[in-house]
């Protein structure tokens, strides 16, 4: 029965592909686009990563730092959301509601303006101050990309982290509130301070509960990172757009870009699945 169903689906897919090909009369030419993934220097014979692959690395950097930053924001704001202090609760509530009720694109346009024209000049960050010796080495490039594009990268990163942080805040809040009331009471009864209760008793238990939704949010973050291409952050989607426009090989380009996104996200999902089952095994 399973095989029959599988066969039917396969047949439908092949038929669809055939029809699409028939209707579109499109000449597939992968070689031109492939040249934008890796490029061969004709003189030396070395292979270089070309802009699509560079875009992929940039997306990976965005995803990594975005995750770290969004987690920090989410952890702090999440703790505020579940705090008895009214001011903290209001601040975190306003943050979450603002971001959840504005489309990501709109938020990023507005916030980008704030970051790039207000925040960076305020802390004296511009393309010249970034070009100091300690930024020009392999490690720095691997972590943050080319120094010349650092302000560009950082503004994209902050926008993304602020945006995703709001969702992580809600996940963290739900995790904290899922810890039974008795745990708070027992911790208070042995005289722990508020800070110690959070760190030693509540958060360790909350983290175990929020791991699955957090994994989903990280994958969403990677996909959402394509939005920052709109503010000219040179990540995968931005580069894909460039390639598609200059070569006019629209389908080939976007299919390759799609495959790249899929590869990153699926890898993340598998890794998180492993982590989760490990965490479950180590504790009962």
């Amino acid at each position: 029965m399973d095989w029959l169903l599988f066969g039917a689906v396969l047949a439908f897919a092949v038929y669809t592909a055939y029809r699409v090909n028939d209707v579109l009369v499109y000449h597939w030419d992968w070689s031109r686009v492939a040249g934008f993934i890796v490029r061969r220097d004709n003189k030396t014979g070395h292979w270089f990563a070309n802009i699509l692959l560079l875009g992929l690395f940039s997306t990976l950097r965005l995803a990594w730092w975005g995750t770290v930053l969004a987690c920090i924001i989410g952890l702090i704001m999440g703790a505020c959301r579940a705090s008895p202090n009214l001011t903290l609760r209001i601040i975190s509530r306003v943050y979450v509601e603002l971001i959840r009720n504005i489309p990501a694109v709109v938020f990023i346009f507005v916030f980008y303006f704030f970051v790039s024209t207000q925040l960076f000049p305020l802390i004296g960050l511009n393309s010249r101050t970034v070009n100091v010796p300690w930024t020009d080495n392999a490690i720095f490039r691997a972590l943050f990309g080319p120094p010349g594009l650092l302000t560009n990268f950082l503004s994209g990163l902050i926008c993304l982290a602020m945006f995703e942080g709001a969702y992580i805040t809600e996940i963290v809040r739900a995790g904290i509130q899922s810890v039974p009331k008795g745990q708070w009471e027992a911790a208070r009864a042995i005289g722990l301070s508020r800070f110690n209760i959070q760190r030693d008793v509540i958060l360790p238990q909350a983290v175990r509960k929020i791991l699955p939704p957090l994994a989903g949010q990280f994958i969403t973050l990677i996909k959402d990172s394509s939005i920052v291409s709109l503010i000219s952050i040179q990540e995968l989607t931005y580069m894909g757009n460039e390639v598609a426009n200059s070569t006019a090989r629209v389908f080939e380009t976007w299919i390759i870009v799609g495959v790249m996104y899929f590869a990153i996200c699926y890898t993340f999902a598998v890794v998180f699945g492993r982590l989760e089952s490990m965490a479950r095994r180590s504790h009962r």
């Binding site: 008795g182 027992a186 301070s193």
Partner: peptide, 20 residues
Amino acid sequence: IERVRRDVGMVFQQFNLFPH
């Protein structure tokens, strides 16, 4: 309050041990 709790032990109906 933290000082007082040092002098007062409490045992709950639901044990409330820290499971982690």
